[in-house]
């Protein structure tokens, strides 16, 4: 068997980004495995039961919820993204298949996104320069898709000072640049 391949981050670097710009700490997360879970037609009950048994939350529209190993957020009617630790769930699809059987369609999404955690005492001034989400008004656990500098991103609100962003991997550099510039412009 051939040698294993080495991995690079979405930014094309060996190590994840961890940067502080003014009050903002920007941390790239490469330790999260991601998969989409979509209910097959008429199998809502089966999926809900399987998820409950496995401790996997399946939150309502525009919501994120965390369970013991998996967290999940709603992305579309009948579809969620599930998060799990990469170290134990690199093969997240293979691990989820037995849980849901043929009741759900599951697709690996780990490498489709750059995952960034943003923290600051107050992220409202930053996000009001980035997207239309009313960060000051949305509740904790709010999860939504939004547009940042033309890029469709998922935004998960863990608090006024803690936000997770999932942006398209191929545009990771553009997204990070936009965040850096916006953070620097807050002066």
């Amino acid at each position: 068997m051939a040698e294993p391949l080495h991995a690079l981050t979405a930014l094309g670097r060996p190590e994840p980004l961890d940067e502080t710009i003014g009050a903002l700490r920007l941390t790239e997360r490469i330790d999260i495995a991601l998969a989409s879970l979509a209910v097959r037609k008429g199998r809502e009950g089966d999926v809900a039961a399987a998820a409950a048994a496995a401790g996997i939350p399946l939150p309502d529209p525009a919501r994120h919820a965390a369970g013991p190993t998996h967290a999940a957020f709603w992305v579309a009617p009948g579809m969620w993204f599930l998060e799990a630790p990469f170290a134990t769930h690199e093969d997240i699809v293979a691990r989820l298949r037995p849980v849901f059987g043929d009741a759900a369609s599951i697709t690996e999404q780990t490498d489709a996104w750059i995952c960034l955690d943003l923290s600051a005492p107050d992220l409202v001034p930053l996000f009001e320069r980035l997207c239309a989400v009313d960060l000051a008004a949305v509740p904790e656990g709010h999860a939504t898709r939004t547009v940042i500098e033309h890029l469709g991103c998922y935004l998960i609100v863990h608090g006024r000072g803690a936000v997770r962003l999932l942006g398209p991997r191929s545009s990771a550099a553009s997204l990070v640049h936009a965040l850096q510039v916006a953070a620097a412009s807050l002066g």
Binding site: E108, A112, R169, S170
Partner: peptide
């Protein structure tokens, strides 16, 4: 219809390997 779709364009790095020696090269990997 029972159909679910999702884009995986960004998830996979994909390379075309073409030519008379393509298979020999890939067989090494």
């Amino acid at each position: 219809m029972d159909v679910q779709i999702i884009s995986t364009t960004e998830a996979w790095a994909q390379f075309s390997v073409a030519g008379p020696n393509a298979r020999r090269l890939l067989a090494r990997i």
